[in-house]
Structure formats: C-alpha cells, structure tokens
Amino acid sequence: MQGISCPLNAMRVKAAVSELERDELLEILVDEGEGVLRVAQTLKDSGHRIVKVENRGHGVSLIVGKSKQS
C-alpha cells in the first residue's frame, strides 16, 4: 500500500487519485455518511476504482486506485 492516509474532501481525493501511477493504491480516511457519499460520487464520476472500504468506527477507510483504462 502506498500513499497517504488522512481526511480529504472529494476534490482533493480526485486530484490525489489522478496523480497515482497505474498500479498504485491510496488509502483515504473520510467521515461516515455524507463524507463517504461525496467521495464515492466523485470517484465514480471520474471513473476511478474502489478496492476496499472498511468502517473504522471513527471514520471510513477507502482504498482506491486509478481506473484500469487510464
């Protein structure tokens, strides 16, 4: 696992994911509810991958990667 782990808003997530190399993964920690919804929406719109999502009690961890095509 490469990358950073901190709460980011959707736009920063998008920017960060698009800077990843093809096979790199990024773990992001977001707030439950609206937080994870926004990020999931942005990732879906920009076609990126969500590999694993886990509820950590104090937030939700998402492991994401670049879309396979790009």
Partner: peptide, 12 residues
C-alpha cells in the same frame, strides 16, 4: 461485485 464493501458504508 468485487467485494469492496462500499455499499455497506454508503447505505444511510
């Protein structure tokens, strides 16, 4: 389904 678990966290 890739078993990512997103839906579990998303469902309000």
């Amino acid at each position: 389904c890739n078993d990512c678990g997103l839906c579990v966290s998303l469902c309000p």
